[in-house]
Design a protein around this nucleic acid. Sequence first.
DNA 1: TGTACATCAGTGAACGCGCGTTCACTGATGTAC
DNA 2: TGTACATCAGTGAACGCGCGTTCACTGATGTAC
Lengths: 181, 181
Amino acid sequence: LRVEILQAAARLLSQLGGEQGLSIRGVARAAGIAPASIYRHFADKAALVRALIDYDYEQLSEAMGAADDSCPPDDPLGRVRAQIHAYSQFAIESPGHYRLLVNNRSQRPGAPATGPLGRVVAGFERCERAGIKLRIPPHRAAIVVFVGTHGRVALWHASGDPDLAKDVSSFVDELIDLVID
Amino acid sequence: LRVEILQAAARLLSQLGGEQGLSIRGVARAAGIAPASIYRHFADKAALVRALIDYDYEQLSEAMGAADDSCPPDDPLGRVRAQIHAYSQFAIESPGHYRLLVNNRSQRPGAPATGPLGRVVAGFERCERAGIKLRIPPHRAAIVVFVGTHGRVALWHASGDPDLAKDVSSFVDELIDLVID
DNA sequence: TGTACATCAGTGAACGCGCGTTCACTGATGTAC
DNA sequence: TGTACATCAGTGAACGCGCGTTCACTGATGTAC
């Protein structure tokens, strides 16, 4: 079934580091089916990858939303922190999925308000409304934190050292501290 | 000759986005020689790539050094700015080379003092000694700026929009402003 | 209930491709006498 | 200067591989009568 193919592809993407290890034949192998069978459910490889991207995008957005909701509404800064940590956690736990998302960002409808960046922007705006002073406008603060987090995560991926994962977490907090006054 | 092969590989890496487009056969084609000829100068593909990495690493370090030297010694902050801008400029002008470097960082002798990060650390230490107040220790400031710059550059690479290159430059300045008091 | 038939998800085999690498060769260059 | 020979950078052809994709097929499932 279509779902099983996607699950096999996701599993493969979790094991391998990035998109280049993701092949039609590999997915078929992982799913225990013939390569040709995939073409009954996806027009071509690009369609398969697109479906994966859509799925992962929703996963990431939901994880950030859940982190947001799990914080008390009267702690806007905590909510931003939680969202960014959810973001970096996703990137650390699923490097393959994360890289797939980032490298195909251009194929997505350009950053809606419910996407990762939009969420963080809204988070910082809530902070400012709650009286927390920022050193730069909320929109810029979100970009700085967002971009910085991506940078840290990307370098962690490149380093290949799992022990440094906790450094990512403290880096994120340090970044947030830098944009608040 | 060996040098011509490396030059052809570098040219190819400049045109294509990343390492995955870099093949022995492609380099041979670009150099106008037979694929087998490459093996007279490099043991295998990995050796060719390693030579490219070494060359690019030196290029980047030299560019940062030159930027450093082109600033007056009594403007330590300007020197840091110049170095980071040289770094991001390299990443923007040569995405393929930059990605090759970053993704193979683990194969290099771990970040010597003359490497990009070491240079920026030294730069911030000079700032502090000159009386410029930092919000975090020089070593952390260097990491934040360095990692943030990488994040911005990586996202620019992923966006594929050349018009946004100037945003990278202003982002770098914004980052530096954030770590100074 | 039983039979004939249509549908269509899944398949094995094959295609052409580009890849990294090997191998016996060739032909120019330089050395020894 | 002329000749015989060694060296070795460069080569064409071939290898085995994994890839994306196509195609005619098969066999189970569901429907019509």
